[in-house]
Amino acid sequence: MCGVLKEKNAFPHLIFQVFPKDRERLIDMYIKGLEIEEHKDKPSKNCSGGTKRKISYIISSMDRGAILTTHSMEEADALCSRVGIMVKGSLRCIGSCQHLKNKYGGGYKLEIKVKGVSTETNGETSEDKKKEVHQLIKDIFYDAEIDEEFGDRIIYKISQHNMKSLGKCFAVMEKGKSESKIEKYSLSQTTLEQVFLKFARLQEEDTEEM
């Protein structure tokens, strides 16, 4: 895409209100400002993830309406205010990225590193520590399920409707850290990529039934 940005008529639908003589100057200004001059003649598929995000920023900064087609959900998430997903030529959903994540996503994943599971602390064994953390999670998320567990790490699946308050979740996690139960944690929502793959599986299932 860097190479495309340098084309004389690059993205006329995005920058049609800019005089043709000014287009290259403006594109050069963005490329220099984001320090990606060395990549300016590369196709986007050969660029790193960080460079792709910078290119997405350039396009989004054009402040013009456009319809883009892509299989890169990272690109869609960065560029688009509204996203539609098509299955077998039919539009199956449309809305903001956050709306699609909330409606079609699988909720949240909470990854926890339990503190001190490899050693005994104040008479507590590794299993005791894990049980305490598990009870802590069940107290705030009654339907939380263990998705993966290995060593001192536990990954929970939390449904969308059970996430009543992010603030409460973080407060409980920080309390767990202060009580030496949790070493660190991360909370992430279903990505747009996972929503896209969900619809892709529906297409595969429809094809198999035919």
Rank of each mutant, 00 (worst) to 15 (best):
E7T: 13
A10H: 11
A10I: 06
P12A: 10
F16S: 15
Q17W: 14
P20R: 14
K21N: 11
M29P: 00
Y30V: 02
I31V: 15
K32C: 01
P43Y: 08
K45L: 09
C47F: 06
C47K: 04
S48D: 02
S48R: 03
K54L: 11
K54S: 06
I55G: 05
I58Q: 07
I59K: 08
M62W: 07
R64C: 15
R64N: 15
T70M: 07
T70Q: 07
E74V: 09
L79T: 04
G89N: 04
G89E: 04
L91F: 09
G95D: 02
G95I: 00
Y104F: 15
G106F: 07
G107Q: 05
I112Q: 00
I112M: 01
K113D: 13
V114N: 01
T119W: 12
T125A: 08
K131A: 13
L136T: 00
Y142I: 15
D143T: 11
E145C: 08
E145T: 09
I146S: 00
D147A: 15
G151M: 04
D152E: 12
K157F: 04
Q160T: 00
N162H: 12
K164I: 09
K168T: 10
E179V: 01
T191R: 08
L192T: 03
E193H: 11
F199M: 01
Q203C: 07
E205K: 14
D206W: 11
E208L: 13
E208F: 12
E209S: 14
